[in-house]
Amino acid sequence: MEDLSQHLLDLSFNSLAAGCTDLQICIREDLKSNILEFIVRDNGHGIDQEDIEKVLDPFFTTKENARVGLGISLLKEAVERCGGIFKIDSLPRIGTCVQAGFPRDHMDRAPLGDMTGTIISLITAGGDMEMVYHHEFNRKQFYFSTEELKLSLEGISIQTTAVLVWLEEYLSKEIKALRRGKDEKFGRAG
């Protein structure tokens, strides 16, 4: 996967496939403490304790027609390559929480990538799922919730093209403004 937003999209699609109706994506970046971490939390049907180990195995998948499921093992590898932290917690019928933390300036940490595109894809694919996106950059915050947006849309579907076009512009502007930090000249960026 080319960037972290693709991992986030992959995790979120796992959540969708697990029947989640509430999805939380939290990203925290702090240049001073050199951290970039994200959490994807859902209320899907969860993973049995005995299967948790198995999702990290590339030769395990619940998809019947696929022989391997690489998503989570690729993320774990991406984290470990940089000496980061990877955690997956799950309770059957309650939900799943996947957490990944990277040393932000590590050369092999992929850039965050296109979060706007990820959120838009999730809204398009998610149907009635509610989603919260929380992004912290050097303690500045950005918060977006589909539930709140839907309230102000007063009955117009969030999947209407005009809404999505506006949302795309809004999100990319806000996320760009949030992350506008002073990057050192040759240091890690993105």
């Binding site: 960037d3 040759f186 240091g187």
Partner: peptide
């Protein structure tokens, strides 16, 4: 295969 900014950083170094 990479095409992001960090490629330029590595190239410069």
């Amino acid at each position: 295969i990479h095409r992001h900014r960090n490629v330029v950083a590595v190239s410069t170094l």
